[in-house]
């Protein structure tokens, strides 16, 4: 848990210090990737608190979520339903994030 938190903080600092220019072609995928990343993050924290955290699931779920989300946006763009599908991805992952945060809250505050 501690290592994870430190790694996350390191990533944030790195991103803030290192001025990464996002290529224009990647820009539509960034918001979706962020939501997928947040989903993986909160899922991982919750699993940790449930004492069923597994490194492999964490890594694979993150990579897959980001890839699938990007694929959906890519397909949507090609088929002319890009923004609708992006909304769909955000809604689905948003619901998951909410549920996981609620579970984390129950763990931390027992309420």
């Amino acid at each position: 848990m501690l290592i994870g938190a430190l790694a996350l903080a390191a990533g944030v600092v790195l991103g803030l210090v290192w001025d990464v220019a996002v290529p224009e072609a990647m820009e539509p995928y960034l918001p979706i990737a962020v939501v997928a990343a947040l989903d993986a993050l909160f899922g991982g924290v919750r699993a940790k608190l449930d004492k069923i955290f597994d490194d492999k699931v964490f890594v694979v779920s993150f990579i897959f979520n980001v890839l699938v989300a990007a694929l959906i946006v890519f397909l949507g763009d090609k088929l002319g339903v890009g923004s609708q599908l992006s909304t769909g991805v955000v809604v689905v992952l948003g619901v998951r994030i909410f549920g996981n945060v609620a579970a984390i809250r129950r763990h931390l505050f027992k309420a």
Partner: peptide
């Protein structure tokens, strides 16, 4: 809960770094 291999733990940490990086880049 499986036996944690160090390699997997390192992968986890890298993933966490990438997540943080993504969030920071999106913010910037």
């Amino acid at each position: 809960p499986r036996k944690h291999s160090w390699a997997l733990r390192a992968f986890s940490a890298v993933t966490a770094v990438v997540i943080g990086l993504l969030i920071a880049v999106a913010y910037q």
